[in-house]
Design a binder for these strands. Structure first.
Lengths: 211, 211
DNA sequence: TGTATTCCTGACCATACGGTCAGGATGTGG
DNA sequence: CCACATCCTGACCGTATGGTCAGGAATACA
């Protein structure tokens, strides 16, 4: 009788373990914060000895940094919907849908990001100043163009973007509060749909992109 | 020559010191999170020996609990504006102004609250289930009434409230990100006014409370 | 098959943390 | 002025943390 077809080549094992550790770390960091998280607990969640984490990630901070970077990537990809769109109703509507979906599927990641920024971004300040800055300026130009074409009201693009981020990420970051106010149960599929609909209604109508 | 008129009676000293410690704790907790904050650092910020903190507040958690409760009180008071109002434009507009002002004046408190909720409210879960729940239901009824009176669109009150909280608190919790995207400078008075105006425009127009 | 390389981990270490306490200082009320 | 209560704090303690390391196990490669 052979062993169950366990893990394969060394290279594959490495990738698997790194993914495993990153997933465990994301969960623990989101629940306890950077300061409250311990390498021992991350190791337990990942099902590996603590010393093994330090083989793959030399320090707690380097592990944390990679967790944050992964989230930021997912986060940026939601922008595609924005760019391809013809007008504000379509583009911003799709962006809201995408970001709401991320809040639903990756709440832990969103919390880690929120925590990092709230603590003055000690680890990813350079990202804020470069990648995020460029991203924001690019989207602001699109919004300004839509305003100039009179497809929406004259709204300050930055404040609109802040509102989009705030509202959509709130469903992840404050998910526990929402759950409590929902009688202790997570939002159902229908309730998530209602949330998306409400958000899109208010914002798209609020900026004059729909009647 | 007399001493400078230093602190007075014992009772007054107690109140002064407790205020001093709570202020220092709010700052440190907001910057480092509960897990990352240390009693030593709070003591240094307050300018008192660490052992003295433990005289007034037996444990780190009891100190933290009082910090969170203080914030929650301020936070609830902003509701007054909501209740007294005649209609949605007035009531919600004033509520937005009040919450934006809190974000500006008490950013540290807002961050502590956000952090607490993000970590599943280990310390103030009872508040969420009682006080916040009642508060929310009360405000939801007012909104439902406005809807019934056709003074605004048929919006789900809970999702509207989440949007109000998310958007206004974003200016405190993500203040660092906003500052970075603002070229590294805090928002000026004019920029704060523009923020309030944008938020009120989008939301009030979005719910059909103004044209 | 031999050996070089990568992977893994139990045991260990220095440090820093929350919290305690004995005993002195300071104010209070009679 | 005295006796009492409150206030204050340096020194200390047990514990848990991030990180290290020697040496063994597993795999790759020739």
């Amino acid at each position: 009788m052979h062993d169950a077809p366990r893990s394969n080549s060394k290279r594959e094992r490495r990738q698997e373990n790194e993914k495993l550790i990153l997933a465990a770390a994301e969960k623990v960091f989101s629940e306890a914060g950077f300061g409250g998280a311990t390498m021992q607990l991350i190791a337990d969640v990942a099902g590996l000895p603590k010393a093994n984490l330090h083989y793959y990630f030399p320090t707690k901070e380097s592990l944390y940094r990679q967790v944050v970077q992964r989230i930021f990537q997912i986060w940026l990809q939601a922008a595609d919907t924005f760019d391809k769109a013809e007008g504000p109703a379509e583009g911003i509507g799709a962006y809201i849908d995408a970001k709401m979906e991320i809040s639903r599927r990756h709440p832990a990641g969103s919390k880690v990001w929120a925590s990092e920024v709230m603590h003055r971004a000690p680890v990813i300040q350079d990202y804020l100043e470069t990648t995020l800055m460029e991203w924001t300026e690019g989207r602001a130009k699109i919004i300004d163009r839509w305003v100039a074409e009179e497809r929406m009201d004259a709204i300050d693009p930055n404040h609109l973007l802040y509102m989009l981020w705030a509202t959509t990420q709130h469903y992840a970051d404050f998910g526990h509060q929402i759950e409590t106010l929902n009688g202790g149960s997570p939002l159902t599929d229908d309730q998530w749909e209602a949330a998306k609909t409400s958000v899109k209604h208010i914002i798209l109508r609020g900026i004059g992109a729909i009647k």
